[in-house]
Design a protein around this nucleic acid. Sequence first.
DNA 1: TTGAAAGCGCTAACAC
DNA 2: GTGTTAGCGCTTTCAA
Lengths: 340, 340
Amino acid sequence: MKRRVTLKQIAKELGVSVSTVSKALRNSKEIGQETTEKIQAFAKLYNYKPNSIAISLQNRKTKNIGVIIPEIVHHFFTTVITGIEKVANEAGYNVIVCLSDESFDKEVINMETLANSSIDGFIISLSKDTQKRRDFHHLREVINQGMPLVMFDRVSDEIYCDKVIVDDAQGAYKAVKYLLDIGCKKIALISTADYLSVGKLRTMGYKNALEDSGIEYDENLVLKIDDMDYCQEPIADLFQREKFDGVLAVNEIFAVTAMREAIKTGYKIPNDISFIGFTDGLLSKHFYPRLTTVNQHGFEMGNIAARMLIDKLEEIEEEEHYRTEVIKTTIVERESTRPY
Amino acid sequence: MKRRVTLKQIAKELGVSVSTVSKALRNSKEIGQETTEKIQAFAKLYNYKPNSIAISLQNRKTKNIGVIIPEIVHHFFTTVITGIEKVANEAGYNVIVCLSDESFDKEVINMETLANSSIDGFIISLSKDTQKRRDFHHLREVINQGMPLVMFDRVSDEIYCDKVIVDDAQGAYKAVKYLLDIGCKKIALISTADYLSVGKLRTMGYKNALEDSGIEYDENLVLKIDDMDYCQEPIADLFQREKFDGVLAVNEIFAVTAMREAIKTGYKIPNDISFIGFTDGLLSKHFYPRLTTVNQHGFEMGNIAARMLIDKLEEIEEEEHYRTEVIKTTIVERESTRPY
DNA sequence: TTGAAAGCGCTAACAC
DNA sequence: GTGTTAGCGCTTTCAA
């Protein structure tokens, strides 16, 4: 086992000073050609690699980006991370991922740890817990310290920073319109609790679309589910209780669970009933029938979020100027709405 | 925007020396109580947080763990990451995730960047490309430099280090036995290319189980698919070509694609034909019918991998002693093999 | 053309 | 008890 060589060691071996080595390795024209060559050859031989910690300390930049998300076992978030990684790596940044596990406390702890000079900036999507409490002091704090922060998807109006979101309301609106267009008359909505920004916005889109089409909003057709792991029962119950011929679900799990109930109930999809879900993940692509979805373009979101952050870090974008980028959702048509 | 305070600033403000502040903040009994209190109060007021970069430089530890995986949009890998995060965070480590994107070159680049003092140790699962080329010089290099490395799932015999794997062969063996037990007579295998350690091992398990049960291995019932995104055609073809009443698939996508073909062909699942897949992800849990799977316990794998690495880092485990932990797969029975 | 010295923020051995 | 000094690995004046 050979330890990494340092500038100092090279300098000693070669009988020159540390600063000479440092300069030579970076091709400074201050240093004579002969010396430069000698030093570079030696460095190569011993496989010299600059210590990035020392460099970070020196110029107070880490070239690390901190990403805090609620969970990673979730197709949408992983596509966003993939998008962040791509842009970040291309710009020479590493990505440190922390999971808040939907908990406010963990979110705060993660932010604090990372903020202590582990990273240059944050990309974050709020935990459910944080959205419920509406306590954003930890975000304010890092912003105050001059650390750039970009929020995506689960954002808050109360914080001024760059944001990337999808047009959740519009997306839901388009989905409902689409269902109406293909002939649905009664459309159910399976959503999450309202304190989640996305749940609320999508519900709004649903309502607006109905209204604009002169259809009365019927509370009985709307389900608000809090716990993802416990959705089958309320959904089955909905099918017992009501008759409808279209379903909009705010995620693919709800959508697929509903399709299962529909099939069990004896409906033919999409002939008797059509389905659209948010989150264009594996389930949507592979379920039978495949699910028509509102694609949130997670990869692009990640790209943009990373781009925004890096622009701030490298001062391409001025500090006090905040943008909110809204990504257009698109509908991916599949078997759950289109005869196949 | 207020910059973070440093020890130096506190020292200056309070008219004491830096080392006094440093000691006082860490409750050294060398420092008088009065001074200590004064300093701590001041630090608290100005929200002093030690600069972790400086500390890293000082003790040549970063408290970061580097994780390199082929992709993140993959249920198995995300569960492993979740497992790693948990153990790592509890031990005060951050996790830096890098994606190799199944490419050898990216894997090498990622390793090199991280190895330049960004992290204390690696957890890695090899890219397909690396397994195909059998070029492991980058792994050897970091090990040589004294950086601990733990491999999981996609490992190589040629490298000496700690490893966490599942009993892939055994898992496949058990799955086939299970299918035979519930009455299957002809079992097809849908696998990946053989250069992937897991594909090979699972195929081996399949063969052994048949052999031990006195059933002849029939090449025509075995599919080797290289490209995940292009599996429907060969699978459909298999259903055209052959008759069988059981299927073992090495991942849930293949399994689910096969179920779709079976249903289209008019089979009833599980009455006419039964299915088992590896990877116990969302698809398995939510498909209709739900898929019986060989669970690889990704979360536990992550836990163990992180534990192993940290034990090495904190010298709880001696340097030159390498373990290979084999995790037992378990079969999760669901609707695809059991009448419901 | 080269090198000495200071400094990034912190810790620790050793003086006072 | 408190301070001085050196040093982690590197960059960057500034002097020689």
